[in-house]
């Protein structure tokens, strides 16, 4: 009796083990399936269209005769929006994190932090709508522009969206800085300001790097906001007030009507592939930074 019940307990243990392993594998399988699908639908474009023209071509006319699938302008749109958004979001996110961990009293922290996180929960279409209806007319009037739907507007909206990501990861990194470092710095006569900026922030640099990378990958993949507020002109931007068309916007606008398995369809998947590679690189870079410069106690500094 005793041995059989322990046997069934063992069985249950085994069953739970395999069940959980199976669940964990689902995510992996789904990712693999999506990747295979992406490659299978994107790569056929290059049988008919040269990669050089695809990456180097300045004109995106997918439905004219003959079609042109040059994504240089879309690529430039994506990269410029992402860089500008990160340039805005990085100081905001990191400094907010520094305030929350180093300066704010616990009571203030308890109030501010949920609001920052709420920003991440805002649906992107709401942010896009805000950019389109409120920011665009204001920007057009204030700067005397031809259109308020432009690179700067899109970057601002995207910055809103990446601030929470950057802030919460940077905050974790700052928290992980050992208390003894702060105490040592203060004991040496450094002010709180000096301690935060000269000691704590540099010590958490790798975590902040990871935060930035993830923030950037959030910004480059975002679709709805750029579709609504970036303007959508498929040309190389000359200034931050020019309209641009980032890659996700093109996919979202055109995919529903592109003939199934036609050249245009494959071209849109090829853009998806490029986007995927971008986010993959950012995520790899993020985990590389996190791994390489892992903070293991104060001795590693």
């Amino acid at each position: 009796m005793g041995s059989s019940s322990s046997l069934s307990a063992l069985h249950r243990e085994k069953a739970a083990h395999w069940l959980l392993a199976g669940v964990a594998c689902t995510a992996l399988c789904v990712l693999c399936a999506i990747m295979i699908f992406l490659f299978a639908e994107g790569l056929p474009l290059f049988f008919e269209y040269s990669p050089v023209q695809f990456f180097g071509g300045k004109f995106w006319y997918p439905t004219s005769e003959p079609p042109e699938f040059g994504i240089l302008a879309l690529l430039a749109g994506s990269v410029s929006v992402m860089l500008l958004a990160t340039a805005i979001a990085a100081p905001l996110g990191v400094l907010t994190a520094a305030y929350l961990t180093e300066i704010a009293r616990p009571a203030v922290r308890r109030v501010v932090k949920p609001f920052v996180e709420l920003l991440a929960a805002l649906p992107s279409v709401v942010i896009g709508f805000f950019g389109m209806v409120v920011v665009a007319p204001w920007m057009q009037e204030t700067f005397g522009l031809n259109t308020g739907l432009n690179l700067l507007n899109a970057a601002l909206m995207l910055a809103f969206m990446s601030v929470p990501t950057i802030c919460s990861i940077a905050e974790d990194a700052l928290f992980a800085v050992p208390r003894s470092l702060r105490e040592a710095s203060l004991a040496l006569g450094a002010t709180r300001w000096e301690t935060t900026f000269r000691v704590v922030l540099p010590a958490a640099l790798s975590g902040i790097g990871t935060a930035l990378m993830l923030g950037m990958s959030r910004a480059i993949g975002e679709t709805m906001v750029v579709l609504m507020v970036a303007g959508g002109a498929a040309m190389l931007p000359g200034s931050i007030f020019d309209p641009v068309r980032p890659m996700p916007a093109s996919i979202a606008a055109e995919m529903a009507e592109a003939p199934f398995r036609g050249e245009h369809y494959h071209a849109l998947f090829a853009i998806g592939l490029v986007l995927f590679l971008f986010t993959l690189c950012f995520n790899l870079a993020a985990s590389f930074i996190a791994e390489r410069y892992k903070q293991t106690g104060s001795s590693a500094l």
Binding site: K58, F59, Q140, T147, G231, A252, A253
Partner: peptide, 25 residues
């Protein structure tokens, strides 16, 4: 060809929205 500098909107409704907010459009 429509010039690449033309702005893009993804629906009739979005065009109305964008034109109504822009005196130059």
């Amino acid at each position: 060809k429509v010039a690449p500098s033309a702005l893009l909107q993804a629906s009739n409704g979005a065009v109305v929205q964008a034109v109504s907010k822009n005196p130059n459009a």
